[in-house]
């Protein structure tokens, strides 16, 4: 996305990657989602999904929890409170860009 977009109010550069935006879009609807389900919904590979999740965790937008079920380790993701706000503001910024009502930060 062009450099100028990142100065639009509410726009979150971390969510510039479509897969990361999609992960948050799922997590604001589902309280918790498992790694494999997120992978399937977004069409990412294991390694790409791991990197996206790590980036979102580093940004404080999601949290991860590991559990063991049936002898298999599973990773569950959930959105943080700030992640929910950032996602909402980011989507609003995208909608303003589309409608032509961009207001620089």
């Amino acid at each position: 996305m062009p450099e100028t977009v990142s100065v639009v109010k509410g726009f979150e550069p971390v969510l510039q990657a479509a897969a990361r935006l999609q992960i948050l879009a799922v997590l604001v609807q589902a309280q918790q989602a498992e790694f494999a389900r997120l992978k399937e919904l977004t069409g990412c590979s294991d390694s790409v999904m791991s990197k996206h999740l790590a980036t979102l965790v580093d940004a404080g937008l999601i949290r991860l929890k590991k559990t063991v079920e049936g002898g298999r380790q599973r990773t569950w993701a959930s959105v943080t409170r700030s992640g929910r706000v950032v996602f909402r503001d980011h989507v609003a910024a995208l909608q303003r860009i589309v409608s032509g009502g961009v207001d620089p930060a």
């Binding site: 062009p2 977009v5 935006l21 989507v91 860009i97 589309v98």
Partner: peptide
């Protein structure tokens, strides 16, 4: 910029 924003919203809607 508008096209990229549209594509991002499209990706959100798709998921």
């Amino acid at each position: 910029m508008r096209e990229e924003a549209l594509a991002a919203l499209g990706a959100k809607g798709e998921v």
